[in-house]
Amino acid sequence: MKKYIIGFTALFASTFAFANECATTVESNDAMQFNTSKVTIPASCDEFTVTLKHTGALPKQSMGHNWVMTKKADAQAVASDGVSAGLDNNYLKPNDERVIGATEVIGGGQETSTTFSVAELDKEGEYMFFCSFPGHISLMKGTVTFGS
């Protein structure tokens, strides 16, 4: 019986470590800032999960944030197109194929996450993340790279 429990514990621990390797948490605040300007996705991941935490206190209607990933060349256009889509659409044009991954817009004290496929992405390509709330992309952005 002991041998089985030890084996199960080792299996659980290795699965848990692998799951965490393909996930990250990014924080945002009421000062229009992310707590990081770089997200690295391990090359071994087929899917990646980003959890967004809004550590501020303001509601999403006035200081909402989301986390959006696109190719670097598409970011500004996606953010601009999202303005007219409005808060109900998380400031993203519905079914925008340029969006690789995105969370919903959240307000202070809230948390959300998104899981998206990275298996088919060009690991040498240039990608970035940003907040698509109107005007936020100027300060709230960063790079997404793939590790080896």
Rank of each mutant, 00 (worst) to 15 (best):
M1W: 13
M1D: 11
M1Q: 12
K3L: 15
G7A: 12
G7R: 11
T9V: 14
T9N: 03
L11V: 08
A13C: 13
T15W: 06
T15S: 04
F18Q: 12
N20A: 14
N20C: 13
E21M: 10
E21G: 04
E21R: 09
A23D: 02
T24L: 12
T24R: 06
V26E: 00
E27S: 10
N29M: 05
N29H: 02
M32G: 04
Q33D: 14
Q33E: 15
F34P: 10
N35A: 09
S37L: 07
S37M: 10
K38V: 14
V39W: 08
V39Q: 04
T40C: 06
P42D: 12
P42N: 10
P42I: 13
A43P: 09
S44Q: 14
C45N: 15
C45K: 15
E47K: 15
F48S: 02
F48T: 01
T49C: 14
T49L: 11
T51S: 08
L52T: 03
T55M: 09
G56T: 04
G56I: 05
P59F: 11
K60A: 05
S62N: 10
M63V: 00
M63Y: 01
G64P: 01
G64Q: 00
H65R: 05
H65W: 03
H65L: 05
W67S: 04
T70R: 00
K71P: 03
A75K: 01
Q76L: 12
Q76H: 05
V78H: 02
S80L: 08
S80M: 11
G82K: 00
V83C: 01
V83I: 09
S84I: 11
A85T: 00
G86F: 01
L87I: 14
L87C: 09
L87T: 06
L87V: 05
D88M: 13
D88P: 01
N89T: 08
N90W: 05
Y91T: 01
Y91G: 07
L92Y: 00
L92K: 00
K93C: 06
P94N: 12
D96P: 01
E97D: 13
R98M: 03
I100H: 07
T103P: 10
E104M: 10
V105E: 05
V105W: 04
G107H: 03
Q110F: 02
Q110L: 11
E111C: 08
E111A: 11
T112M: 07
S113G: 07
T114G: 08
T114I: 15
S117C: 07
S117N: 13
V118C: 05
V118D: 02
V118S: 01
A119M: 13
A119T: 15
E120T: 12
E120Q: 12
K123E: 07
E124F: 11
E126Q: 12
Y127A: 06
Y127S: 10
M128Y: 06
F130D: 03
F130T: 00
C131K: 04
C131P: 08
G135R: 11
H136L: 02
H136I: 03
I137Y: 05
I137C: 07
S138R: 10
L139S: 08
M140A: 04
K141G: 00
G142S: 01
F146H: 08
F146A: 06
